[in-house]
Write a protein that binds this DNA or RNA. Structure first.
Lengths: 167, 167
DNA sequence: GCAATTTTGTTATAATATAACATAACACTC
DNA sequence: GAGTGTTATGTTATATTATAACAAAATTGC
């Protein structure tokens, strides 16, 4: 995921993604009085280890290997904090978590999830959200939250299904 | 849920919903060579017991009370069959299942889920799906499947939050 | 009726998530 | 900088959702 919100792409320097995510997180926490503790930061880094949504127990295992803490609540609480501050998203259809590519931009949480490489790209265009609100409003429904998860094949994997296992 | 695909409404005769769902299921299974066994039919009826998405284990409990079968795979297999034939949908954000209001119409599975009464109304308008495809295509993404789950307050619950516990 | 296929039963277990309470770290005041 | 309230983390146990693997039974088609 480049910072622009476009799909990850097979060739980007992923360290920049992680660095930017951490910097954003620090800024947002500082602004809002949240505490980005060492644990929360490590969990955020692990979520950002790739553009593929990652399960809570995979994070837990990774923490363990890095000498981290030991039990599910540790991870779930950190995830809860990161979700609450808009630093990550939960992918409902996968029971997994992915870094928010534009924290602080109040995006609706719409994702294109590639069935081949597993990467999840976050949409930031408003047209889908607008269509949802329009349709809902027509039926007298007041939208609170949208979950839009689209699976299919990303551009990289359509062109060349092998070029995709990007960090 | 009236058969038109509009939201349930607080006052409809829900028996008609169930009867229609069973009739549709019989027709679809007959046409496609699927076997709507007694078990599958009972599970379908239990999913249709209301317009609220229902969990697999709630169905299992209800089956037990009605002298039905005993273990999770029983229910999950029936749900799998019903999903495969488009007779029910899975609501990812709730890990629950709801009857398909228009089986056979290849709708994309878009839902308005009321946070107050819990009812899930299925959208059949194409505007949201079209917006999703347009946005995805712009990014070179080939859409396979959409999950659109919108939570908020339905018309009934916006007007009168008490009038809503409909079957 | 018999063989092939499909469905259901049964047991065990995997994967995801939270409750409840104890301890530790931090932050604020005096 | 000791005391105190608050927030965060550790720990144990358990709830919830889902599937694997194999056995038995029912159904279908001949």
């Amino acid at each position: 995921m480049t910072r622009s919100g476009s799909p990850p792409g097979a060739d980007h320097d992923h360290r920049l993604c992680v660095e930017a995510a951490i910097a954003d997180a620090q800024a947002i926490c500082a602004a809002r009085g949240g505490r980005l503790t060492a644990l929360r930061r490590r969990v955020l880094e692990l979520v950002w280890a790739s553009h593929r949504p990652v399960g809570a127990y995979a994070i837990l295992d990774a923490l363990d290997r890095r000498g981290g803490a030991g039990a599910p609540p540790t991870v779930y609480r950190a995830l809860e904090f990161l979700l609450a501050h808009g630093l990550i998203h939960r992918i409902e259809s996968l029971n997994a978590y992915v870094g928010c590519s534009r924290p602080g931009h109040r995006n609706a949480g719409q994702f294109l999830i590639c069935l081949d490489c597993g990467n999840a790209a976050e949409l930031d265009g408003g047209s889908v959200a607008a269509a949802v609100v329009a349709e809902a409003t027509r039926l007298g429904f007041a939208v609170e939250r949208q979950t839009v998860e689209v699976s299919g094949l990303c551009a990289d994997c359509t062109v060349d299904p092998e070029a995709a296992d990007v960090g």
